[in-house]
Structure formats: C-alpha cells, structure tokens
Amino acid sequence: MPYLKDYRLFISHAWKYDSTYSGLIQLLNAAPLFSYYDYSAPKEKPLFPPGTPYTSIEIADKITAKIRPAQITLVLSGMYGAYSNWMQYEIDESVRMGKPIIGIYPWGQTNAPQYVTSNATEMVRWNTSSIVSAIRRLV
C-alpha cells in the first residue's frame, strides 16, 4: 500500500448551508487513497456561537488560527458567499498567508461569486476527482 499524505485543509463555508459542507466532506471521504485533516470549525463547536461575547477582532483571530496550519483553503462558492463578510475574510487571510485556494462550484452550477473566482488559484466542479486532483496538484 502506498504511503498516504495527510492533507491539511481549511474549508470556508457557512453553517447556514450545512448540507453543502456535509456533501463536500462525503466527496472527500469517498476519494481513494486520500487522507486529510479538516481545520474548519466543527458545527458542534463553532468559533462564534449565537450570542457570542467575542468582538469582530477576536473572531478574526480565531479564524486566522484555524487557517494558519492548513496547507490549502477550499471555498464552497455558492452565491451566498457573495454576502458573507467572514467568508471574504477567510479568503483574504488565505491569500495573505500564501495558501492556494480552490473554489468549488456547487453541484450543477456554473456561476460563483466574483470574489471567489478572482481569488481562487483554481476553480473546480463538484466531484471527488476534480477536487482531490486539484488539492494534490496545489499542495
């Protein structure tokens, strides 16, 4: 059996659209000979739960700390991303840190927010092969 490289991923997403994130995890888990660690905040332990006492600066610091150890950022580029300041912050931080960014078109869509397409190192379609191939190529 070949040695598996563990890829360190940060997945930019909005918990309001949980099914998209869950679908991406299913695609990654279906990839043969692909091992990864997801540095994104789990739904069970969000960085800033409702009613959080954190300031915007503290939230930004927590997001930056999640992105820092990752090798690459994946952005679920549904049109909701056009309206999320925190997703834009995650993209900006990934760019600032020199992390490659993979923008992922949602299933059956051909459009993505301009902010994602203009900052992505590569845009890929919603399928295991294209996503995993891009990760392997860029890391």
Score class of each variant (00 low, 15 high):
residue 83 Y to M: 12
residue 73 T to V: 13
residue 115 Y to K: 06
residue 104 I to W: 01
residue 66 K to C: 15
residue 91 I to R: 00
residue 66 K to A: 15
residue 87 M to G: 13
residue 121 T to H: 14
residue 73 T to E: 14
residue 94 S to D: 06
residue 89 Y to W: 04
residue 75 V to E: 01
residue 127 N to E: 14
residue 93 E to L: 09
residue 125 R to L: 09
residue 99 K to I: 05
residue 91 I to W: 00
residue 88 Q to P: 01
residue 65 A to C: 12
residue 67 I to L: 11
residue 111 N to C: 12
residue 112 A to D: 03
residue 105 Y to V: 08
residue 78 G to E: 11
residue 97 M to I: 08
residue 69 P to R: 07
residue 127 N to T: 06
residue 67 I to R: 09
residue 110 T to W: 06
residue 114 Q to R: 09
residue 107 W to R: 04
residue 96 R to V: 03
residue 86 W to A: 10
residue 117 T to H: 06
residue 82 A to T: 13
residue 101 I to E: 07
residue 114 Q to N: 07
residue 84 S to N: 10
residue 84 S to R: 09
residue 127 N to W: 11
residue 95 V to S: 02
residue 75 V to T: 11
residue 112 A to E: 01
residue 81 G to K: 00
residue 96 R to H: 03
residue 119 N to Y: 05
residue 114 Q to L: 07
residue 115 Y to S: 08
residue 108 G to K: 04
residue 76 L to Q: 06
residue 78 G to F: 06
residue 86 W to P: 12
residue 111 N to D: 13
residue 67 I to E: 02
residue 119 N to Q: 10
residue 103 G to T: 05
residue 97 M to Q: 15
residue 95 V to K: 13
residue 65 A to N: 09
residue 68 R to E: 15
residue 90 E to G: 10
residue 93 E to N: 05
residue 85 N to E: 15
residue 127 N to L: 09
residue 117 T to G: 03
residue 69 P to E: 15
residue 113 P to M: 04
residue 123 M to K: 11
residue 67 I to V: 15
residue 74 L to A: 15
residue 117 T to D: 02
residue 81 G to S: 03
residue 122 E to T: 07
residue 120 A to W: 01
residue 125 R to F: 08
residue 109 Q to W: 05
residue 76 L to V: 08
residue 103 G to Q: 01
residue 70 A to Y: 02
residue 72 I to V: 15
residue 97 M to P: 06
residue 105 Y to R: 09
residue 94 S to W: 10
residue 77 S to F: 00
residue 88 Q to L: 13
residue 76 L to A: 12
residue 119 N to W: 02
residue 74 L to N: 10
residue 79 M to T: 09
residue 121 T to R: 04
residue 123 M to S: 11
residue 72 I to E: 14
residue 99 K to T: 08
residue 102 I to C: 07
residue 71 Q to E: 15
residue 86 W to K: 11
residue 91 I to H: 01
residue 109 Q to L: 12
residue 125 R to W: 03
residue 88 Q to A: 13
residue 77 S to W: 00
residue 81 G to H: 00
residue 104 I to D: 00
residue 125 R to I: 04
residue 97 M to E: 07
residue 121 T to N: 12
residue 90 E to L: 07
residue 90 E to D: 14
residue 68 R to N: 14
residue 104 I to C: 04
residue 126 W to G: 01
residue 69 P to I: 12
residue 115 Y to F: 05
residue 69 P to C: 13
residue 68 R to Q: 14
residue 114 Q to A: 12
residue 81 G to M: 02
residue 80 Y to M: 10
residue 115 Y to R: 03
residue 80 Y to P: 05
residue 72 I to A: 14
residue 114 Q to I: 07
residue 104 I to N: 03
residue 110 T to G: 08
residue 99 K to F: 07
residue 97 M to H: 04
residue 115 Y to P: 03
residue 81 G to V: 01
residue 122 E to I: 13
residue 93 E to R: 13
residue 67 I to T: 11
residue 98 G to K: 02
